[in-house]
Nucleic acid binder design. Structure first.
Length: 423
RNA sequence: GGAGGUGUCGCAUAGUGGCCUAGUGCGCCCGCCUGCUAAGCGGGUUGAGGUUUAAACCUCUCGCGAGUUCAAAUCUCGCCACCUCCGCCA
């Protein structure tokens, strides 16, 4: 949710931001009208309510005829108060619903356009030339099967399409990555967290994951009215909901390890091989609470940490500045890191960091107490390590002609230098 | 899953229908006093929203939501959280 004052003071800025996202600006006029109704209905309610309170004070002191006259008048007022309150509540709800459907104001610095209009900010490392090395690279699934690391057939048997088992060195690799990522994050000043992966609707709604059709991509347990989170951003954002944080305590940085569940509705037929696009994976996620003013610099810092992580894994990657039409509801700007996937001949997303400014904190009621009163906090999120895609990148980029896989030095303490095919 | 209990301002507590504009203590902030510190004295101290140039005023907020009533922290119902016991389990 954006600052309602911007609507009043500078509606053109909101219209411009909508256009940058490639969306209609009509909602701005609807919002302005709804706010007007909201304010006048508040004024009417307060007027009758005030009168009711004043008359009510006279009743215990009044006697006889004066008293019964007062009672008659207040009885009439009572109904008016109820009606005015209901009207006020309805106007507030209408305004609130519209406000919540409005996406965050896309940054003017984000490239304009849709999914394909991203800007490449940087390319790090060089993809290997397998032709020069004299062999055809195997894809991650073939390698995973040779190593006894990935079992998608049994994943499908037990849970269905887009599920998998990690076995042997596959399981060990995920545990090693988890341990490495969590200890790196702790060294950078993040508080390690293991959050619940099931959350109430308010948490899901507050982070913006139920809006604009994205609700279809979320698993929901009807019996219990709980959602399975698609990222630990959700429980981490809701962690401080309904709280006021002291300005001196910021930034608060959290790194969470959690499973992530995604229905992948609307991606039928896309990335169906292996474990690239799955219904469940585990992830270490960074999440920061700070002030709006600090959020822009923090976004750069999170990106820097993501790069440091990929550098440590010695993966070739590039960084893109996601276009305004592809930001999702909550972000004003988003940077993705994409690792090179040799058998696809492309860079593919392995991490993503968003500045969601005050969009989530207004919904979740998270404020900062500073010198000049309270203001909504700002939140940011960024992937440190999404397990399945990182496993894919490590296997494919580290492979050798015999199907063995060389690991980066950072992982040697956990798994040795080379993963070897089963005999 | 069953039975019982609790939920008031940062913390602790008072409050069983109108004198609650929620009192008191602690903590915290400002001032006075004071060789220093402590004590003492005076004032302030939930948050949100509305009217307004401003000062100021008003409304809402006693876990959340409905209801009863002219009037609800207080009475009724539903929900949530926590505590104790039983059952089950890791």
């Amino acid at each position: 949710m954006i600052d309602p004052r911007i609507l009043r003071d500078d509606p053109d800025a909101v219209r411009a931001a909508q256009r940058r996202r490639g969306e209609s600006a009509d909602i701005v006029d609807e919002l302005i009208a709804a706010e007007q109704v909201r304010r006048t209905s508040i004024a009417s309610f307060e007027a009758v309510r005030g009168e009711q309170k004043n008359l009510g004070k006279l009743i215990p002191k009044a006697q006889g005829e004066e008293k019964s006259e007062l009672l008659a008048r207040t009885k009439e007022l009572s109904q008016q108060v109820k009606d005015a309150e209901a009207a006020q509540a309805q106007a507030a709800e209408t305004f609130d619903r519209l406000m919540k459907s409005l996406p965050n104001l896309a940054s003017e610095e984000a490239p304009e356009g849709g999914e394909d209009d991203f800007v490449v900010l940087e390319t790090v490392g060089t993809p290997r030339d397998f032709a020069a090395e004299g062999f055809e690279p195997r894809d991650h699934l073939e390698l995973g099967q040779l190593l006894g690391a990935i079992d998608t057939e049994r994943g499908a048997k037990v849970s269905g399409a887009r599920f998998y088992f990690l076995t042997g060195v596959g399981a060990q690799l995920e545990l090693a990555l988890t341990q490495l990522a969590m200890s790196k994050a702790a060294a950078w000043g993040f508080v390690p967290v293991i959050p619940p992966a099931l959350v109430k609707p308010s948490a899901m709604e507050g982070t913006g994951y139920l809006g604009q059709g994205s609700g279809d991509d979320v698993y929901y347990l009807e019996k219990d009215d709980l959602y399975l989170v698609g990222t630990s951003e959700v429980p981490l954002a809701a962690y401080h909901s309904d709280e006021i944080l002291e300005a001196e305590s910021l930034p608060r940085r959290y790194a969470a390890f959690s499973p992530c569940y995604r229905r992948e509705a609307g991606s039928y037929g896309k990335d169906t091989r292996g474990i690239f696009r799955v219904h469940w994976f585990d992830k270490v996620e960074m999440f920061v609470y700070t002030t709006l003013e600090e959020s822009y610099a923090e976004h750069e810092r999170i990106l820097a940490w993501e790069k440091e992580w990929l550098d440590g894994l010695e993966l070739p990657y590039r960084v893109i500045d996601v276009a305004s039409g592809d930001l999702g509801l909550s972000a004003i700007r988003k940077f993705d890191c994409e690792a090179w996937i040799p058998t696809q001949g492309k860079y593919r997303e392995v991490s993503s960091t968003s500045n969601t400014t005050q969009f989530q904190t207004r919904r979740l009621d998270i404020r900062v107490r500073g010198e000049e009163g309270t203001a909504p906090a700002a939140t940011l999120n960024g992937t440190l390590c999404a397990m399945t895609r990182t496993v894919i990148a490590l296997l494919e980029n580290g492979q050798q002609a015999d199907g063995s896989v060389r690991l980066p030095p950072a992982l040697h303490p956990y798994l040795g230098e080379v993963l070897r095919p089963l005999a």
